[in-house]
Design a protein around this nucleic acid. Structure first.
Lengths: 324, 324
DNA sequence: ACATATATGTTAACCGGTTAACATATTAAG
DNA sequence: CTTAATATGTTAACCGGTTAACATATATGT
């Protein structure tokens, strides 16, 4: 496949290469007739400027990278969808990176900044936090993670944890379990668990903390089954994700318990699925669209060298459905 | 931020630029000592070759684009996850494109091929099929869509539709509904609906065909509610996606019908969510991972100019859970 | 008629890395 | 000792587009 270059266009239009470039970039003096000639020539030759070449000159690829543990996780897939939308509005394309929470992959992807392949990254980074490779002047915006001096976007997870826990207490739960991910990772999302611990302690509520480092649905299910075997009196569950909440609904069904009568459940995230389960999940809603929008805006401002707000904490909200 | 170039490395290592390039590309004669000197210099300067520049020279970006109607749809997010995995194994990065089934966006993204930003596309393209912009020699692999001479990956949807419909009949359903998307789009996925129509006709089964051009969950729900109002005798539903199946479960609950006793449901896709609902969905499984793997392989072969199989039809499989 | 604004061309350097061609020096093999 | 293989340097062209500098030509206004 032969490539049509700006020279071919110049020849076809009967003008100089510089003139074609002027048309392409709308710079300098240009008559309408020349503009037309050039556009027509481009049309005839089906010419598209080589964006790699332009990127090289401009030192700008107009590509943003997004690092997530896994795009197939509903929370991240919804987030990535929004990020792509806002990036597109701003003339950027989005490169997707599954890190599988692997440090090597995270680093390898982040190096695309140094190699000029992307202009910046939005990263749900979990392993590289202590990594000295990450510098505060990098075009990097993190999600739910405060790494030295980098701007981050997060939800008010502590408040989310308070709302969820208090809501279960208000609804009369006497023994409340909290199922969450790995608390050793220093991620802001874990503030919801801190809130759970503080609220139950302060209100003197019987509590169970179940930390699961797993992530697959059937693995969650096993954890939940074991939990109910060990603590059959649990009458309230604050799940740190809607997926976990779904698995609690499942297990409750297996145990012949009815929801919300015997067990009340509050999930977290408000992914689309939360409204689809039977019964639909009462949950703490994160504004995923806003997170995406703010992440893109912040990153673009950082890329352009503007001042950016470092701490971006978005409010959460209780969405009451039928598990409480 | 000053950029470190190959010249800086050459100076730092005390060698010629060509030598650094030889090290970088492992070409020509090289002594171990020089190699070491160069690597050390790169390390000291924290040098990363400018990939844009290399792409320009090689006319190869090592980026694949993926076009989907929406990444936030679970089927596509799982698919994209697998595509990213296999692309990464082969040294490619993945650019994600939500088309929202919009012709303009599909075209705009596809033009990234001409502008050399991506080496090729895997596309779930729905609107551009009659578009003469798409040529058989493009580095493009389509999903569920047969566009003149382009390789495509699909599942054996006709068979999927047969299995689902026959299964419901075998289970004793007397009046079976089929809820599907827009049948006017000439997409291979619609073969499942053709199979439904043919099987019910042949076996002389009472059937209802509900075509919904909508896509949001709450909109599906409305369609399903209306359907049950108009046809209360329906005792079997073949839903053309697991999401639709989930909304049938929902509505059945509202109507006080129990599943599978009163209504049996077969979904389609076997997305992760299918196992998480209560009751878990009996569904026709598409091998999403294989689809992703085959799409990447086929595209890479096409990019490398190798012969590729044009028709790639993967088998489907009934996964029996608790809605039947 | 003259200064100024507008329109286009020519040329060359540049973005950063790659490569071919050629020169030269060292080392190993026969 | 000669030949060949190995190792590195120098130079210049190239990928495709951008831009600054300068030349030149026409049009416009006063």
């Amino acid at each position: 496949m032969l490539l049509t270059t700006i020279k071919d266009v110049a020849k076809e239009a009967g003008v100089a290469v510089a003139t074609v470039s002027r048309v392409l970039n709308n710079r300098g003096y240009l008559s309408d007739s020349t503009r037309k000639k050039v556009y027509e020539a481009m049309e005839r030759l089906n010419y598209k400027p080589n964006e790699i070449s332009r990127s090289l000159f401009r030192k700008k690829s107009n590509i943003l990278g997004v690092i997530v543990p896994s795009v197939s996780h509903p929370f991240f897939s919804e987030l990535v969808g929004h990020i792509e939308y806002f990036a597109y509005q701003a003339g950027y394309k989005v490169l997707i990176c599954n890190s599988y929470a692997d440090n090597g992959k995270e680093r390898e992807y982040l190096e695309m900044i140094s190699s000029n392949q992307v202009d910046g990254f939005i990263g749900a980074i979990y392993t590289s936090n202590s990594d000295d490779y990450i510098k505060p002047d990098m075009p990097l915006v993190t999600l739910d993670m405060n790494i030295n001096g980098l701007p981050y976007i997060t939800s008010d997870h502590y408040n989310g944890g308070e709302i969820a826990t208090n809501f279960l207490i208000d609804r009369g739960c006497k023994k409340i379990a909290h199922i969450c991910g790995d608390l050793e990772i220093d991620i802001l999302a874990n503030n919801r668990s801190k809130a759970f611990i503080n609220v139950t302690k302060k209100q003197n509520i019987n509590s169970v903390l179940e930390e699961s480092k797993l992530s697959r649905f059937d693995e969650y299910k096993k954890t939940v089954i074991k939990m109910f075997e060990e603590h059959p009196e649990i009458d309230g569950v604050f799940a740190s994700s809607d997926i976990i909440a779904a698995s609690v609904i499942h297990v409750a069904g297996l145990n012949g318990k009815s929801i919300p009568e015997d067990i009340k459940i509050v999930g977290y995230d408000d992914i689309d699925m939360a409204a689809m389960t039977v019964p639909p999940i009462t949950t703490i809603k994160q504004d995923i669209e806003k997170i995406g929008e703010l992440a893109v805006k912040t990153l673009l401002n950082k890329i352009e060298g503007k001042e950016v707000t470092l701490e971006n904490i978005l409010p959460v909200e209780l969405v009451e459905r039928e598990t409480t």
